[in-house]
Design a protein around this nucleic acid. Structure first.
Lengths: 332, 332
DNA sequence: TACTCGCACTAGAGCGCGCTAGTAGAGCGC
DNA sequence: GCGCTCTACTAGCGCGCTCTAGTGCGAGTA
């Protein structure tokens, strides 16, 4: 910076003004400074900038590497953040790298806020984080913590899916649980409620799982083992999310169970994956773009007014009927 | 920091020593400082740290949000970086956010090196970047640029896949190109060479595409349209990568073309996806973990010795035969 | 005793910027 | 001529830390 100033024949302060696009420099000086900077390859140093300014205008985003829905969200986050003049830093959770680590990394790099995609953290942990910094949880309902949240009305989505299945004639509808995954508790509850509402309370069955393909595969194996020992297959399965649904589909199809003839499958997320099955996945769409926008806006607005009450955006999901759902088999 | 020093009755310098885990502080002072820091919630400020230290010990990683193979790589990168005492910052490319932007963001945050997963940049751009900072390209061969690279021996992988297909009896093997995607040029070349070697030079056919599901879908549509106008289907397709293969599979299966009975499909990457098709995808495995380790090590070693010549790690890929490849139809 | 040595600790410069307070000079009215 | 304002620019402190060059002190050595 000093070099630039000297070469351009101005003070360092003026160079600073030029690079911050602030008024107080004439048109020609501005151009001269920029030209000189370009010549000697000067680029303002972020660390020093942050230090001097006190604010980083950077949002940290924690996500899970293999969660395809997160990739959808990321795109939206980048867009909205740019529009509002914020930078985005990413930190992934992965096997061997827990949420705490990912968040520490973000905070260590001076993010002013942390947006957590699909966190599985306890309310108390979230609250602690929310008190230490600005935090937004996406894809999960949070109550009693100093954290904004953006999620879809899980119950509505599940209800739509259940109505769809029951209308097709299904009765033995099983739910594969999402474990501690975001939204799981609500989905489970909504599933139970819907079953009751349709007079199928006795048929309700929840299989523990999580939001990975693996848990879908395991559930599939379980069903097959049950069938082999004489029990009937469910006629429809409501998976915890699309990845789980994909795993289930794979396990079933490999074993010769035909979807949706023998069994219907419904996912949740409408992630990229959903279009890609040979027969499209019937699923519940969450509007990733809109969720991303809300998340960023919540973070930014709370930065401007840190003491406002935690907010919650609840978006309406929408059932997308594709090829994996159909009438139950005649003997079902 | 000053607060901590005062409360603990020591100088700021000593607090610094304690937090950097450096020798020069007695056991009890160390504990006292840490206790005090904990009490008042002090955490060292990264920006100031970087500024003062001159080094950030942070690696930047550019990746593509929806590229599942990148997620595999990320896990490996985090692991190896941690082992070597480096932090990792992520920046995604996405629609509306090009590579240049992603890289600028990383550099702006003081990453000492940039690891680019699957870059489509020109050699000249890479060279310019390599001169400005330490850069490593993963998944793509780079020559003539001041950049280290890690990739698999594309030609070997393609050759294995082609040998496999020809051995099964295929002759009309078509290649869907990966466009400007990493490794595409080599794969295309290897495909042509393999066809010639098998005496099928006249049958060689490359369809332009890229590394997305969409391009697989389009290729599928093309094949189907050709079939409808009386031309024969290819008997096997070598896709640019797994995502492309998935798209192709979807398009074909929907149209009633049965894989591998009517047509065989081979992918490239052995990403997460490959296991998930109802019939597993025959594909060429790239060892993501090993690639990640090489990438990180190259970056770190070049930081220690910036003037060393660019290095290249070429790993051996391995054909993984699953369910999408079989003998060609009798009339093929 | 006088000296070196090692350990625990401190003073203070400096990292590369942003920002506040201030200056120089041009233009204007009276 | 004077004071006034406005624009274009500058001096220099401070952000929170690291790091070099020290100081002081007790133990070991000649």
């Amino acid at each position: 910076m000093a070099d630039v100033a000297e070469r351009a024949g101005v003070s360092r302060a003026l160079v600073s003004i030029v690079f911050r696009d602030q008024p107080g420099a004439s048109r020609e000086t501005r151009e001269r400074v920029l030209r000189v900077a370009d010549e000697i390859g000067y680029r303002p140093d972020n660390a020093a900038r942050l230090l001097a300014r006190g604010r980083s205008r950077t949002l940290g985003v924690m996500f899970t590497a293999h969660q395809t829905f997160h990739a959808d969200l990321l795109e939206g986050i980048y867009g909205e953040a740019e529009r509002l003049g914020y930078e985005v830093l990413l930190s992934a959770t992965a096997p061997g790298r827990g949420e705490a680590k990912a968040v520490e990394s973000l905070l260590g790099h001076r993010c002013e806020a942390v947006i957590m995609l699909g966190t599985g953290a306890e309310t108390a942990e979230l609250d602690a984080l929310g008190r230490r910094t600005v935090a937004v949880a996406v894809g999960r309902r949070v109550s009693g913590a100093r954290v904004d949240s953006v999620h879809t009305a899980e119950s509505k989505g599940i209800r739509q899916a259940m109505d769809h299945l029951v209308e097709l004639g299904h009765r033995r509808v099983v739910h594969i649980d999402g474990g501690k995954g975001p939204g799981s508790a609500e989905r489970r509850r909504a599933y139970r409620a819907a079953m009751r509402r349709h007079g199928l309370g006795d048929e309700a069955r929840v299989i523990p799982g999580d939001h990975t393909e693996q848990s879908g595969i395991e559930a599939g194996r379980l069903f097959l083992a049950e069938r082999d020992s004489g029990l009937p297959l469910p006629t429809a399965v409501l998976a915890g999310n699309d990845r789980c649904a994909m795993g289930l589909l794979m396990a079933l199809t490999r074993a010769g169970v035909e979807v949706p003839r023998d069994l219907s499958v419904v996912g949740y997320d409408d992630s990229h994956l959903s279009h890609l099955m040979p027969i499209g996945l019937t699923t519940v769409r969450q509007d990733a773009l809109l969720m991303a926008e809300y998340a960023v806006r919540f973070a930014v607005e709370r930065l401007d007014d840190p003491d406002s009450a935690p907010r919650e955006a609840v978006l309406d999901p929408k059932l997308v009927v594709r090829g994996t759902s159909g009438p139950p088999p005649a003997d079902g």
